[in-house]
């Protein structure tokens, strides 16, 4: 067991891939001598050389598309899109090409491409740099969408992503890079499609992912003082989606709250709510509730930004209301 940061976990995951298999290489904007916008690839360029740590032009579409082509040719490109906001400039390559080539070619070609990117608000970087689009990508058949909340999950999930023959969007949260946590020694892996109960409780189930896991754990701490036992389920991957773990928990607690950072309307949480009511209707003591981002572009000013995204107080309030306490 070692205690490392989320940044170190991702970094280690990439390093292992580069060390173990020459088919892996990195492409991205300023991932070379600069070390990556979030310093994940610091030192890589010096260690692995410019052929395998390819500093690219500011061309999101071209580098993702080049990743698609290289993957079709049998390589294992790992492309860094600086933040998920900029992935919109590559969405054609992600959605129309990466996600569909296996299917449209009748299984003749596969696209084992890993796109790493950074999601989330809370860094005071304004509306264009603070969005959470992982839920959008989760609506695309052909993609895998991975949203780790801890260093252990980041490392274990990435090790599984490496083995996939289909494209992955690996979504790191901008505020989690410094978060530290225990990581088992040895080559452990976490398969995609396995949610994890991050906290046990008997009164209500929170279903969430990425940084909101920590927000919900903090809310659970507060509520525990009041005698409310909250169970927190971390989805860990949005596609594939593990509803079994969610339903198992809801059957026990009989209450479900879905928490996400993106705006509520059309958010991924609506999908969870829909599936919970379908799969566990008879076990529910009340409606599935949701806490999500406000219907607003993320404001710059810090007091406003705090209002725009869920925090532990809002989550706790929602649960008190839900349980009538």
């Amino acid at each position: 067991m070692a205690i490392i940061s989320y940044r170190e976990a991702v970094s280690q995951a990439l390093r292992e891939a580069l060390e173990e298999d020459h088919r892996f290489f990195l492409m991205g904007e300023d991932i070379g001598p600069y070390g990556g916008s979030f310093a994940v690839t610091r030192g890589f360029w010096e260690e692995f050389g410019p052929e395998r740590v390819k500093d690219s032009p500011l061309s999101e579409s071209a580098i993702v598309g080049a990743g698609v082509g290289a993957a079709m040719a049998g390589l294992r490109p790992m492309v860094e899109i600086m933040t998920i906001n900029f992935s919109l400039l590559a969405i054609d390559q992600i959605v129309n090409h990466a996600a569909k080539i296996r299917y449209m070619s009748g299984g003749q070609f596969s696209v084992p491409l890993c796109i790493r990117t950074v999601t989330g608000a809370g860094a005071s970087v304004g509306a264009t740099h603070s969005q959470s689009f992982e839920g959008w990508y989760a609506s695309v058949p052909g993609l895998h969408v991975v949203v780790p909340s801890t260093p252990k999950d980041a490392l274990g999930l990435f090790r599984s992503c490496r083995e996939l023959m289909d494209p992955v969007i690996f979504v790191e949260h901008i505020l989690l890079y410094g978060a530290r946590g225990e990581v088992p020694d040895g080559p452990f892996k976490i398969p995609l499609g396995q949610a994890e109960v991050k906290r046990l409780g008997r009164d209500v189930t929170i279903v969430t992912f990425s940084r909101m896991v920590h927000v919900c754990l903090a809310a659970a701490e507060q509520l525990a003082v009041e005698g409310i036992q909250v169970e927190v389920v971390d989805l860990r991957t949005l596609r594939p989606l593990d509803m079994e773990t969610v339903v198992h928990s809801v059957r026990k607690t009989r209450h479900a709250l879905v928490v996400e950072e993106a705006p509520k309307q059309g958010g991924f949480g609506a999908e969870i709510a829909s599936q919970v009511q379908h799969l566990a209707f008879d076990y529910l003591d009340g409606p599935v509730e949701r806490v999500a981002g406000e219907e607003v572009p993320i404001p710059y000013s810090m007091p406003l930004e705090r209002l725009a995204i869920p925090d532990p107080e809002r989550v706790a309030r929602a649960i008190r209301a839900q349980l009538g306490r």
Partner: peptide, 9 residues
């Protein structure tokens, strides 16, 4: 972009 990636490989 896809063709560019094939050439890159």
């Amino acid at each position: 972009p896809v063709a560019t990636g094939l050439a890159l490989a």
